[in-house]
Design a binder for these strands. Structure first.
Length: 621
RNA sequence: GCGCCCUUAGCUCAGGUGGAUAGAGCAACAGCCUUCUAAGCUGUGGGUCGCUGGUUCGAGUCCAGCAGGGCGCGCCA
């Protein structure tokens, strides 16, 4: 039904519909393992414990290492069902857990926590597990068997990409990667809004440049006065398109008298097609520079032409969800030109929206919403379980009606979710960098990438919650210091790789493969900094899972920042205490143990950066 | 007027869906560079989590109200 443009550049993966990571390695989440032990103990202490209560049992890290390695709320959660005071139940659970060889110590604390200290070997075992699984370590099965479509960017093809598009592009891309790592079958999709009045205005603007190119210039004012809607896209980027039109068509598009009204229909389609193609090429290039490569491009115009919109409206009509009616004006804010008007309406209120929503404009054409229903219906027909739209926060009011539409069209079989991205304010040295669409001084994505670099752009965009406003400090994004999280994390990876390279000078390569390092005894990893790093590595699988469930890729960025901090800390400890250095002259056994930890750290950093679409660099220059 | 999002250290922001004494970076203060990479490191100070109530063993987190900021509110996308 929908037109899918072939990718501009031939990339093999553009045709891979589903991204999958290798199958999950067994027993990757230490917390899940320990939680099982806790549940076993709880079920023994409280026979017949309802499953919904057991589901609330958590095993978490402790905030304070003095409390042990992990803590569980089991006794407090189950106390009521057990008809026991939390402390007493906790004591019973703790007693049972002491029998577990993985648990070195179990004690009752506070209002009924059970604090657990694990056998040190349990944490160390995370290292060979990582080395064996490689970057697949942390893959989850949360999404196994669930098909997700992530639609993002979806900019109007009316100009090059600018900073306003960037956050959604990066967040959507990373979210899709994250969901894939959590086991979902994911399609990345770009919806080309090439059907509305915007692209007609674009065609007019390109035509203006065309007239200039063939030597019939009109002033901006004269042209704006002569065309419907005025000149909406005055940016220079259309100059080459006007020139290209002139090359291809000579003066044929201008008509004998070269007036605007003359022969409009003749050239409008030609110019529009040509311009949209050129814009989409530019957008794809910009996206590629940002590291974004959608699997599927869907064209709104092709979809409309296919009759899909009328079809879906017909379907809704059959279901009794369409009627002609008159909407009330919004209370407290009646537009000046308000007049009651019968419209074709969709019963969105049947599905939780505030008001029913119009599907046709007064001129009989479809609203954007009508087209979007058809588009989402197309996605539904492609058998997704979940549709996720990554949208700008200014589309927040649009979400309930889209949710209603997806419920209606899919008969509740498909879930619709929206991830909203707030505005990004660009600042330099604390001063805002002003942007104005009218003046054409939007910060172009390409300029931003040139100045800051792809990795720093992506990392910075992901180093905040998507729905929080963000200040993007250009100086900070370029800085080669800890202030710049992209640098800080990449530097940690580069340090890992650097140590491993250097190790090759004293140890045979065969002893430094993942397989060889996975067999090394790790008993000498006893420093607090070692332990902190091991503990952090152990939380990677649950971080992935929780971030995927919450649809929050920024958690990956924060995890990596913390992990890098742990690694740098350990590195720096080697300055004061030479026995903590990774390369120990004359002590190959200890060196290999430390290198195993380093190699595991590098793998997890790489795996996290991969989700974010940031390059794990081998060295810093 | 209504709806959604937001309000956490001087600044920029986390806070894993209700857990223990609320964290990080920057800035400030005090120390530290002959070193596997000082592109820094260690330590200290810094808080009525906007305000007021409520729910319960327990609230930054959930609920209600209020104040302040952002976004949206029929034929824009």
């Amino acid at each position: 039904m929908i037109g899918r443009c072939p990718p501009a550049e031939s990339r093999s993966h553009a045709f891979i519909l589903f991204r999958r990571f290798p199958p999950k390695a067994p027993m990757s989440d230490l917390f899940a393992t320990i939680r099982q032990s806790v549940l076993t103990a709880v079920n023994a202490a409280v026979p017949g414990l309802p499953p919904e209560i057991a589901a609330r049992v958590e095993v978490t890290t402790t905030r304070d290492p003095a409390h042990g390695d992990m803590a569980t709320n089991a006794a407090m959660v189950c106390a009521k069902a057990a008809r026991l005071p939390p402390a007493k139940l906790a004591a019973t659970i703790a007693e049972a857990l002491r029998a577990d060889p993985a648990i070195a110590e179990a004690s009752v604390a506070g209002p009924g926590f059970v604090n657990l200290r694990l056998d040190p070997g349990v944490f160390r075992a995370i290292v060979p597990a990582i080395l064996a699984a490689g970057e697949a370590f942390g893959d989850a099965t949360t999404g196994t068997g669930t098909r997700v479509n992530v639609e993002y960017v979806s900019a109007n093809p009316t100009g090059p990409m600018h900073i306003g598009h960037c956050r959604g592009a990066v967040v959507g891309d990373a979210l899709a990667n994250l969901l894939a790592k959590a086991g979902f079958e994911v399609v990345k999709e770009y919806y080309i809004n090439d059907a509305g009045a915007q692209v007609t205005a674009l065609a007019w603007a390109a035509y203006w440049r065309y007239l200039q190119a063939i030597g019939t210039p009109m002033t901006e004012e004269a042209f704006a006065a002569a065309v419907p809607g005025g000149l909406q896209y005055g940016g220079d980027y259309l100059v080459p398109i006007g020139e290209a039109l002139a090359r291809d068509h000579g003066e044929a598009l201008a008509g004998p008298h070269r007036t605007i009204a003359e022969g409009t229909q003749m050239w409008l389609d030609t110019v529009r097609d040509f311009t949209i193609d050129a814009m989409m090429r530019a957008i794809r290039e910009d996206l590629a520079l940002l590291g974004v490569h959608p699997d599927v491009y869907s064209s709104e115009r092709a979809m409309v032409a296919s009759g899909a919109v009328d079809a879906v409206i017909g379907k809704l009509h059959t279901d009794g969800l369409i009627y002609d009616g008159v909407l009330e004006p919004p209370k407290g804010k009646t537009p000046d030109d308000w007049e009651p008007r019968p419209q074709t309406l969709f019963r969105a209120t049947n599905f939780g929206d505030d008001v029913d929503r119009p599907l046709r404009k007064s001129d009989g054409s479809n609203t954007y919403f009508a087209n979007d229903i058809a588009y989402h219906n197309d996605k539904i027909s492609r058998k997704f379980d979940i549709l996720i739209d990554v949208l700008g926060a200014d589309h927040g009011g649009y979400v309930p009606r889209m949710k209603a539409a997806v419920r209606a069209v899919s008969h509740d079989s498909t879930k619709f979710e929206a991830v909203l991205c707030q505005i990004v304010h660009i600042v330099r040295g604390g001063q805002p960098v002003r942007m104005s669409k009218r003046a054409g001084t939007y910060v172009a994505l390409r300029d931003l990438l040139e100045e800051v670099g792809r990795d720093a752009v992506r990392f910075t965009m992901l180093f905040r919650k998507a729905d929080a406003q963000m200040e993007f400090d250009l100086d900070q994004a370029i800085a080669q210091t800890r202030e710049n999280p992209a640098f800080y994390v990449q530097y940690a990876h580069a340090r890992c790789r650097s140590v491993l390279r250097m190790a090759l000078e004293t140890l045979p390569a065969a002893e430094l493969t993942s397989e060889a390092l996975a067999r090394v005894p790790l008993d000498n990893l006893t420093d607090d900094a070692d332990t902190a790093l091991l503990r952090r590595l152990a939380t990677w699988p649950r971080t992935v899972e929780a971030a995927a469930i919450a649809r929050e890729p920024h958690r990956i960025a924060f995890f990596l920042y913390d992990l890098a901090g742990d690694f740098h800390m350990l590195w720096n400890r080697g300055r004061d205490d030479s026995t903590l250095r990774f390369l120990q002259a004359g002590k190959p056994e200890e060196t290999r143990a430390r290198l195993a930890l380093v190699a595991a750290t590098a793998i997890v950093i790489r795996s996290g950066l991969r989700v974010m679409g940031v390059e794990p660099v081998e060295e810093m220059r």
